[in-house]
C-alpha cells in the first residue's frame, strides 16, 4: 500500500525542515495518543512525543520505506516508551481520569447527544486506564489508529496470531471491567 506521507518523507529525508514539520503536524496527535497509553500521564506523554520526533528526525536518513512512515513512528514510540519507563517511575493515576478526559470531545450539534457521548467516552477512558498496558496499547492501535493485525504485529514485534489473541483478551478484560463499573445498564 502506498504511503500517503511518502512525498513528505522523501523531502524530509533530504533535510527539508518544512516537510518534516508537515509530517509532525499530520501525525503528532496519534503519536501523543499512543504515548499517553503507555505512560497514563499527560506531561510524560508530551515529553515522550517530543523525544519520539527528535529520534525520528535523527534517524530519518536511515528510514528505508519498507513500512509506512506512521508504523515506523509507532515503533519508535514503543521503543522510546520502554526506555522511558525504565528510567522514570511509572505512576498510575487512576483518580485523575476525569481531569485528563476534560478536552476529548469536539462539540456536537445535539447537546444531549454530545453529553451522552462525552459521558460514554469518559467512562471508556476511565475503564481502559485500568487495563494492563499491553491491552491498552493493542486496543489503541486497533481501534484508534485503525491499524491492521499485520501492522500491529510489525509495531509490537509479535506474531499476528499473538496480536489477535491479545486483542480478544483485551476486549474481554474491558467488557468485564465495563460490566463491573456500569452495573446492569452499562450501555
Amino acid at each position: 500500500m502506498e504511503d500517503p506521507l511518502a512525498e513528505w518523507v522523501a523531502r524530509a529525508q533530504k533535510g527539508d525542515r518544512a516537510a518534516f514539520e508537515e509530517l509532525v503536524k499530520r501525525t503528532h496527535r496519534r503519536v501523543y495518543n499512543l504515548a499517553y497509553h503507555f505512560l497514563s500521564n499527560e506531561q510524560e506523554a508530551e515529553d515522550l512525543t517530543q523525544e519520539v520526533y527528535l529520534r525520528a528526525w535523527r534517524a530519518l536518513p536511515d528510514f528505508r520505506g519498507d513500512a509506512q512512515f506512521s508504523t515506523w513512528l509507532y515503533r519508535i514510540t514503543l521503543n522510546t516508551a520502554m526506555n522511558y519507563q525504565r528510567t522514570l517511575r511509572t505512576q498510575e493515576q487512576a483518580a485523575g481520569a476525569a481531569e485528563t478526559l476534560a478536552h476529548f470531545d469536539a462539540p456536537l450539534p445535539d447537546p444531549a447527544a454530545a453529553a451522552a457521548t462525552r459521558d460514554r467516552n469518559a467512562r471508556l477512558w476511565a475503564t481502559v486506564r485500568r487495563l494492563a498496558q499491553r491491552y491498552r496499547v493493542v486496543l489503541a492501535l486497533f481501534y484508534q489508529h485503525e491499524l491492521s493485525y499485520a501492522e500491529i504485529a510489525e509495531v509490537l514485534g509479535l506474531p499476528i496470531g499473538t496480536v489477535k489473541a491479545q486483542l480478544n483478551r483485551a476486549r474481554r478484560a474491558l467488557a468485564a471491567l465495563w460490566r463491573e463499573e456500569n452495573g446492569d445498564d452499562g450501555s
Binding site: 509532525v24 496527535r29 506523554a45 478536552h103 481501534y143 484508534q144 467488557a175
Partner: peptide, 29 residues
C-alpha cells in the same frame, strides 16, 4: 457486554495533547 464495549470502542476519541503542544514541539524541533 462485549458488544456494548465494541460500540464504545468504535468511536473512541484520541487523547488530545494540551493546547499549544504542537507549537512547543515544533519550536523544540
Amino acid at each position: 457486554w462485549l458488544r456494548t464495549v465494541e460500540a464504545a470502542l468504535a468511536s473512541w476519541p484520541l487523547a488530545e495533547p494540551a493546547p499549544g503542544f504542537l507549537e512547543r514541539l515544533l519550536e523544540r524541533l
